[in-house]
Structure formats: C-alpha cells, structure tokens
C-alpha cells in the first residue's frame, strides 16, 4: 500500500505545485511508482509545470463522475516510466468533488502506487479540505515571509484538527544572502514560530523559472541548486537521514542545523 502525501500551504504562490512536481519526479527517479494528482479543480497547473499539458484526455472529475476509468485518465510521463499525472478539471469548480470522492480516489491510487502526491489548492476552503481528505501525511510549503508563515500556521492548525498528524515543513525560496544580513527571517526563526519539523530547505533559484518555462522539473537538471534540495526532500520522505545542505560556501545560517547532525559542511569558515 502506498503513502498519500498532500502538499499544501494556505497562501498561494509559495511553490506547492513546483514542490509536488519536483518531489514526485525525484521519487520516481529513485525507482518508486509515483502518482501526482492536481487537486486544484478549475485552476489546472501541475500539467504545464511538468510539461504534460498536451497529453490530457480525461481529468480527475471525469474519473469521479464515471466518464473515465482511473487508468485512462492517468498520464504516463514518458521520461520516467513510473511517474503518472492525474490532471485537474479545468472547466469545473471545487464543488464537483466531495470529501468522500477524494478518499475513494486516493484509496484506489494507493493500491497502484508507492507514493501518491496531492497538489492542494491555496486557501482553507473545501478545495483544501478535499485535498487532505485521503492524506496519510501533509507537507506544508512556505517562504520566509510574514504572510506565508502566518497562513502556514493556520494550515498547520487545521491539518492537526483534521487528525492528519504532525505536518512537516518545506521552506522554499530561501535567500541566503538576505538571511545572513538579517533582512529575511532565518530558518530557525520560522521553525520556532511554527513549532514544526523541517523536511527541506529550497534555495531561491532562478533556474526554476527557466526549467518551468521548458516544462522540465528542476530535479532533472543536476546543476540546479533547488533541484538538489528537492532530491534531498525526496530522500527524507523515503525515510533517509540526509543532512541539510549548505546553500553557499560560507556555511553561516546552516551551521546550527548541521550541528543537529553532529557535522559541519566542508569549507565552513567558522
């Protein structure tokens, strides 16, 4: 039986879809059977981020309403034979799907795949509730900004209220230089404020824009720093102990995190 993991955030635009696409691809590259599901009904996005937008025939609502079987709607990513996408409907809204529909759908997927990743819509409404309905665990994506962290706190509270266990945090778009200058909240600040475990830190990386333009995900590019961070997140999701990487040569803000693992990055100044 596979694990169902929902990627959510509260605030929009912090990187849920990018995280889902990269984490799903990284897990598939590691040999797992992976389904990524776009649960943002009416605002289809995961397909275009993954470069699969031209291959959609059926969508999630078609499956729920019985017009297509799950196997017909799942799009196989030709680059990774063990990676499939279930796209969102574009011409319907969130009311086309119920809580029970999502539980049934995730149960069906869980039987066929090792990992089922659900890309949640922003917000705290029914779209979000449906997205976590079948989840075994939840990953919260945030950036080190006051608005995103505040919304993340709300979502963490709701996730725990729905008895989805303790979510883990993906801290996205980290600008090391600003953190060092004290002009961006530190990783420790965010973890302390949210009282949550960290599953990954993703550096702000312009290459994400470039690769998304091409319909490629960053983990496919070995030179991408963000891609490397997502590969590490995939390994932690699989249960491996992976030290948090230094985002630049100086070490700096990461020294204390490395301290947790009893080691320091090579070339650290201090």
């Amino acid at each position: 039986m596979g694990r169902v993991i929902t990627v959510t955030s509260g605030k929009g635009g912090v990187g849920k879809t990018t995280t889902t696409a990269n984490l799903g691809t990284a897990l598939a590259m590691g040999g797992a059977r992976v389904a990524v599901v776009d649960a943002d009904i009416g605002l289809r996005n995961l397909d275009i981020v993954m470069g699969l937008e031209n291959r959609i025939v059926f969508d999630l609502v078609d499956v729920i309403e019985g017009r297509a079987r799950l196997k017909q709607a799942l799009i196989k990513d030709k680059r990774f034979p063990d990676l499939c996408l279930l796209p969102a409907a574009q011409t319907r809204d969130k009311d086309a799907v119920s809580h029970d529909d999502m539980v049934a759908l995730t149960n069906q997927l869980r039987a066929e795949f090792d990992y089922v990743l659900i890309d949640s819509p922003a917000g705290i409404e029914s779209g979000f509730r449906n997205a976590i309905a079948g989840a075994d665990e939840v990953l919260i994506v945030t950036t080190p900004e006051v608005s995103a962290v505040r919304d993340a706190d709300r979502i963490i509270g709701l996730t725990e209220a729905f008895e989805k266990g303790h979510p883990r945090l993906v801290l996205n778009r980290v600008k090391t230089r600003m953190m060092k200058a004290g002009e961006m909240m530190s990783i420790e600040d965010v973890l302390q404020i949210l009282a949550i475990d960290l599953v990954g830190v993703v550096p702000d990386d312009e290459m994400i824009v470039t690769s998304t333009n091409r319909g490629e995900v960053a983990v496919m590019d070995k030179s991408s720093r963000a891609g490397k961070a997502f590969v590490d997140i995939a390994r932690r999701v699989r249960g491996e102990q992976v030290p948090f990487m230094a985002l630049d040569e100086g070490g700096g803000v990461f020294d204390r995190l490395f301290g947790m693992f009893g080691r320091r990055p090579r070339g650290s100044e201090r």
């Binding site: 962290v149 505040r150 002009e183 600040d189 404020i193």
Partner: peptide
C-alpha cells in the same frame, strides 16, 4: 554590526510581529 544594530534588522521585526499576531490568530 549585528550586535549593535540588532533592533533595526527587518527579520527581527518580522519575527516579533508574526509572534504577536499568531497569539491572536491561535
């Protein structure tokens, strides 16, 4: 600089404002 100008760092302001608003939110 960090020691003497600590109060002026915007990250400290962000943290303090967030912590205060979260007490109310929670």
């Amino acid at each position: 600089n960090g020691l003497f100008r600590k109060r002026e760092r915007s990250s400290d302001l962000a943290r303090e404002r967030l912590l205060t608003v979260l007490v109310h939110d929670r």
